[in-house]
Design a protein around this nucleic acid. Structure first.
Lengths: 148, 148
DNA sequence: GTACTTGCAAAGATTTTGCTTCCAA
DNA sequence: TTGGAAGCAAAATCTTTGCAAGTAC
């Protein structure tokens, strides 16, 4: 079985440049934060982190950059089962789709990869002749630590 | 293989009464609309339909009722890949989980059930010792009709 | 009767838009 | 140089909250 680590296609900045997107200092900063983030950030998290490096960076620029990245399919937008109502979380798109497991008690987010998931996607594409571009799977429940 | 139709556990109103939830005319109306809706409604759709029967029903009551149903796990809250940014869609919870296929060109939403999906949930529960309470799968792409 | 629910108005939270100035290519 | 991007302020959306009045059980 092919086991691949969580690997982005290539650095987001490279990807953007090759697509003819104009690189500004703000975009470089935001993209760097998204890429190196361990967890899932929402727009405000991202803004707060960015402001530590560039205190003049505007919140609107964060939203516009996220929209640009979404349009290019370079980030995934999650809402993690609306645990924090209304907020959207972002992560750099990886080579391999993964499932998000959100513990509804402690809030921990785990990621899960599975060849069954890949098979399921194949089944959808075949049986419905549906060309999948993005998939999002979010499961909510109790993680192992919260079941004691 | 067990093939089950899309069947709700039992009428939502019954379910609510048995749980000791106070039934008002407003709740009866909203619950009836949710249950008999063919598609996926957002809060405003729901409000508009409800107002045709009770023009005094307030939008806030819609939000409060949806929150109550969510808390009881009787509706699922979807965002259908943020096709309409910010909006949440609701559907009565059915016995069997299903996958939503959202065509990013024409906007059509299809539903898909699969035993592979059930297996995948089993795998998550076993391998991560994660007790799943809700699952949401949304795939975005091109439906058969939009691929010509 | 009493606790829960509704309507109304107002506030909150998140995201988008208009417009001017600035800057990457 | 020039079209695209950023900053700022304001608007647009969607959702929640506080409180008085009404109602289910």
């Amino acid at each position: 079985m092919l086991v691949e680590q969580k690997v982005t296609r290539r650095p987001l900045e490279q990807e953007l440049i090759s697509r003819g997107v104009r690189m500004t200092a703000q975009r470089r900063l935001l993209v760097e934060i998204i890429q190196s983030a361990e967890g899932h950030l929402d727009a405000l998290d991202l803004w707060e982190r960015a402001r530590k490096h560039d205190s003049t960076l505007n919140k609107v620029t964060v939203y516009r950059t996220l929209n640009m990245l979404k349009k290019h399919g370079l980030v995934d937008e999650l809402d993690l089962l609306h645990m924090r109502s209304g907020r959207h979380f972002y992560e750099a798109r990886t080579m391999r789709d993964h499932i998000h497991l959100a513990c509804l008690r402690c809030g921990r987010i785990q990621e899960f990869e599975s060849s069954l998931f890949e098979k399921l996607k194949g089944q959808i594409e075949r049986e419905r002749r549906f060309r999948i571009q993005v998939v999002r799977v979010e499961a909510g429940g109790l993680c192992d630590k919260c079941q004691e």
